[in-house]
């Protein structure tokens, strides 16, 4: 069970309001799609919820507990894990070592030896077992994104934030990744996915939240939300212009 709520989150960088009073919730078992044009605050929201950034104001509450000011390493221990849009593997470690790190920490820390054994199975889960003892320089982008997934999953999250897991992939890889996300979700993990491929998100998500300039402008059923006029102008309109 995971019940995540956030209220009035504000975050600005210099004069730019990346988040300008964002409230919402993540329900247990759903796939929540976060969409919006570039710079609308989707990634910032993930960064704040996962503890990567500190919010300027607002509250994040998990299962009734205020976790706003918790350091990031405590947040993942409570079951919130995330991946990065541009994969950020530990560059001097092998693929296996990368995945073993989160296993040594968190609620049930393992010894380095046990963590390696367990890490092997997570690599198998994402199909990277052949690369276990390779330096991460031998992995391509698609594989690096899977490594990110394995690393996040190894922390045994209840809610998993996926920041643009599909960007930069070719169509075959996109399909494979969508299947992977479904498999993760089927195993009972709640998923929050940031994605700019609208078609993909609407087919994958069970609910969609639309952000624009740091504010939530719509929230609801994927099919309906994307037809709202304010979403069309804010999101699709902008995209059409920039395209």
């Amino acid at each position: 069970m995971a019940d995540l709520r956030f209220e009035d989150l504000v975050k600005h960088f210099g004069g730019v309001h990346a988040l300008d009073g964002v409230s919402g919730h993540v329900d247990d078992g759903e796939i929540l799609g976060l969409v919006g044009p570039n710079g609308s605050g989707k990634s910032t929201l993930i960064n704040v919820l996962s503890g990567h950034y500190e919010a300027d104001s607002g509250r994040v509450v998990l299962d009734g507990e205020d976790i706003t000011d918790r350091p990031a390493h405590r947040i993942i221990e409570m079951g919130l894990a995330r991946t990065y849009q541009i994969p950020r593997p530990f560059s001097t470690m092998t693929a296996l070592e990368n995945v073993s790190v989160p296993l040594m920490f968190g609620a049930e820390p393992k010894s380095p030896g046990e963590a390696r054994e367990a890490a092997r199975e997570w690599l198998e889960f994402v199909g990277l077992e052949a690369y276990a003892d390779e330096p991460i320089t031998s992995l391509n982008l698609h594989q690096l994104k899977y490594l990110e997934l394995a690393r996040a999953l190894a922390a045994r999250p209840r809610i998993l934030f996926l920041d643009e897991v599909l960007s930069g992939l070719n169509p075959a890889e996109v399909n494979e990744s969508i299947e992977m996300v479904r498999r993760i979700h089927d195993s009972g993990i709640t998923i929050v996915i940031v994605e700019h491929l609208v078609r993909v998100v609407t087919s994958l998500a069970t609910r969609i939240m639309v952000l624009d300039r740091g504010k939530v402008i719509a929230d609801g059923d994927p099919g309906e939300v994307m037809r709202l006029p304010e979403v069309v102008t804010a999101y699709l309109g902008k995209r059409a212009q920039s395209a």
Partner: peptide
């Protein structure tokens, strides 16, 4: 070197922010 402390430090060296979000008590 062979302890959780060591692996935590290695991960800090490679990417401290990621280490922290993966559960390493970096400070």
């Amino acid at each position: 070197q062979n302890s959780r402390l060591g692996w935590g430090l290695f991960s800090i060296r490679d990417d401290e922010d990621v280490a922290e979000t993966l559960g390493v008590p970096t400070f």
